[in-house]
Design a protein around this nucleic acid. Structure first.
Lengths: 240, 240
DNA sequence: GGTGGTCAAGTGGTCAGACCAGTTGTGGTT
DNA sequence: AACCACAACTGGTCTGACCACTTGACCACC
């Protein structure tokens, strides 16, 4: 019996979801006005405060622009939204957007080595020891999902070692985007389970404080999985 | 007569600002409960809906966790927040945080070349022509702020050419972070005004579809300004 | 023909007070 | 000691009212 926490969605959460989807899917064109708060409340069968709470969060996301006295206008999220929007773009109405998935994988492969290089210069042996501990556990694991979780833990440590708030926040945003899809990812990447050697080499480069080697080692960690995932995405795209 | 738009801050905006600052500055420790909504409303002299709108946005940012029935708890934003929080971390209570400024500059220098490489593979001559147009204008400009704005326009085009939603959203977040500081940046980088040649070389590499050369050219665009800015930040840090 | 003033209608901003729903701690019961 | 019931919190939602602002139409006036 597999139990999972009950998820309760508040009214304003549901309004938020619905409006975000409408804006992101382009059902509401850029520059067009949203219905008034009162009208939305009436149509959706909720109170105005509930609508307002949702709209306030949507405005913060950069999807709309609200102006007192005037109508609330739809903005171009490609220009105005920040990385926090990524999770909602990646899986849209239950389906994974392959183009966005591709960009996530590319960004991961592009940024990871930079993080490793910074961490090599700043983490020191303490970081390397922590990484090795994770790798030791990875080497013994057989469950594909557990493997992915440990890989995330590994990168979490690495990002800490890079001592960069920007990369930390980027990592958080990216993790939030693909954590929901982690079980699916684990299946696609099942063949990689147990191949801990690249991770160990990266940790060694970190211990040595060798930034260029760490950069290359990180690329060797990331590139194979990136290729596998891009291949899987391409296959999905063909189906659709 | 230099006129600028009047900025009106709503009550819930002010509550939002205040609470974000308190959490980010660590005045409210991680795991600690916030005062109840009713209490906050009373203490701040505003209505409960206003407090709720602010809290909802703060929760979305990942700074707190609200649970019906229980208290609202402070989370560790280093773990939970996304890149959208960056602007509020970079300038905190009017002051620029040098450690975070450093990480922004590092990230820019690290990611820029990757974007250029992607754009070289996807942008084509059309992109290069657009870039050249911006460079042509840069070459004629003498105002330092105007120069920075054009540089941003240049990168905006480049990011479009990379055809990557993740990099686009990252760029938006980073731009949101340092756009407020742009006048100050322009002063520090005044010496770079007019030096458009690196930008032109990058555009040429894009036109040729030569990703490795584009990567190197982007590094040559970014590294000098990064060094200058890091130096300025270090000087600021010494003062404090 | 353009300028500025006036006004009504519609929009978002804020408030007060009430009630529902869920959590937590307390104290009694077994 | 384990369990349970209840009271006193917490956040969630609604209603209806009023304020502040923008918009557009209309109307003088120059």
């Amino acid at each position: 019996m597999a139990l999972r926490p009950v998820t309760r969605r508040s009214v304003s959460d549901q309004v938020f979801d619905q409006l975000v989807d409408d804006v992101v899917d382009g059902e509401l064109g850029v520059g067009e006005p949203l219905p008034s708060e009162r009208r939305l409340a009436e149509v959706l069968g909720v109170s105005r405060p509930a609508v307002r709470e949702a709209l306030g969060r949507i405005a913060q996301t950069g999807l709309v622009e609200v102006r007192q006295g005037g109508a609330t206008l739809v903005r171009d999220f490609r220009r105005a939204a920040g990385l926090d929007l990524l999770p909602r773009l990646l899986v849209r109405s239950g389906r994974l957007d392959t183009a966005i998935g591709r960009s996530v994988i590319e960004a991961r492969a592009e940024i990871g080595p930079g993080i490793a290089a910074l961490a090599a210069g700043r983490g020191g042996p303490a970081l390397a020891t922590g990484l090795d501990a994770v790798v030791d556990e990875m080497a013994t694991v057989t469950d594909a999902v557990r493997w992915q979780v440990l890989a995330l833990d590994y990168w979490d440590l690495l990002v800490d070692g890079a001592d960069s708030m920007v990369f930390r926040l980027m990592f958080n945003s990216l993790r939030a985007a693909y954590e929901p899809a982690l079980p699916a990812l684990a299946t696609i990447l099942a063949d990689e389970v147990g191949q801990a050697e690249p991770y160990r080499l990266l940790a060694a480069a970190i211990r040595a404080g060798d930034a260029p080697t760490a950069r290359a080692a990180a690329a060797r960690v990331l590139t194979p999985t990136a290729d596998t995932l891009l291949g899987a995405l391409a296959a999905m795209g063909d189906d659709a």
